[in-house]
């Protein structure tokens, strides 16, 4: 069964004696949904609930029209039948297999030595690493292998749990470009967990902000992330020019920035997402 939104889910879970309650609502038509929020907001838990890795989850999960969880009618498709790819933050490569073995791991036996593995090794730029063991790889290389392994089984949804967290800035930027390219090329919808604004702006089509297990906001990256940082720019657009793609660039006059003190340091550059609140004034 296909069709319908890429993801429509409402997952609930109580841990301990009601010490932590997850109540997350997610929806995505296509592209990348970013789960954004502070530590312990329930982001990883939400991914695991979508993947079917937590037994006590209630609610519903529908991916591309296929219902994978609906506890109102007792439906619970097990994790190994969901076809949801999962790339955890740490410790996800099988240490007893080389890179090619890791990428081929989820394929039927007949396909493990075939073209499909080679294609994914090439596409993720790791063909030269095929005989290497995970412990000899850098953080970025490991995440590429994990990504190739998850994509090789042609998942209907890809879950990425802070995939750039253990990589340096340069490596992170390169891997981000790779992820964006692969997701677009193969039209795989994805849910990305991050608490990095740049990552969210760079990759996200929709953002869900979680706080203490609950969905508190849903919207476009610009809408949500500008509020998440609670920084506002005020000023008058003094001049502007139209650029390609229906966009424009302008300069502000008498601009001020307001926000939490810890974000402010003289001499640092402010990159702020915002909205234009009013139309042109009649006079300055």
């Amino acid at each position: 069964m296909t069709g319908g939104p890429a993801l429509d889910a409402h997952v609930r879970l109580t841990l301990g004696a009601e010490e932590f309650q997850l109540d997350a609502r997610l929806s995505l038509d296509a592209g990348v949904l970013v789960l954004f929020g502070p530590s312990a907001a329930g982001k990883t838990l939400t991914l695991k609930a979508l993947a079917g890795l937590l037994a006590a989850v209630t609610g519903h999960v529908r991916v591309a029209g296929a219902t994978l969880l609906d506890t109102s009618c007792g439906l619970r498709v097990p994790a190994h039948e969901r076809r949801i790819g999962y790339v955890p933050q740490h410790q996800s490569l099988f240490p007893f297999l080389d890179v090619a073995g890791n990428v081929a791991f989820g394929l039927p036996r007949a396909l493990r030595r075939g073209d499909r593995v080679e294609r994914w090794l090439d596409e993720l730029g790791i063909a030269h690493l095929r005989a290497r063991r995970p412990e000899s790889l850098s953080g970025g290389e490991r995440q590429r292998v994990a990504l190739a392994r998850a994509l090789a089984v042609e998942p209907r949804l890809l879950l990425l749990d802070e995939p750039f967290a253990s990589i340096d800035d340069d490596g992170s930027a390169v891997l981000r470009a790779v992820v964006r390219e692969v997701i677009v090329r193969h039209s795989v919808p994805a849910v990305l967990v991050t608490h990095d604004v740049d990552e969210a702006l760079d990759l996200g089509d929709r953002v869900v902000r979680l706080d203490r297990g609950r969905t508190v906001e849903t919207g476009t990256p610009l809408e949500i992330l500008a509020r998440a940082r609670r920084v506002f720019v005020r000023g008058r657009i003094a001049s502007c020019e139209r650029t390609d793609g229906g966009r424009a660039r302008g300069a502000l006059e008498d601009a001020t920035v307001e926000g939490p003190a810890h974000l402010f340091e003289e001499g640092s550059e402010a990159v702020v997402a915002g909205t234009i609140a009013r139309g042109p004034r009649a006079s300055g």
């Binding site: 993947a51 097990p78 994790a79 190994h80 969901r82 076809r83 955890p88 410790q91």
Partner: peptide
């Protein structure tokens, strides 16, 4: 054995016995 390894294997289509 890290639980994440087993979790990933399940998402790759392996039954609990596998």
């Amino acid at each position: 054995v890290p639980g994440e390894l087993e979790a990933v294997a399940r998402t790759l289509g392996l039954s609990p016995i596998s």
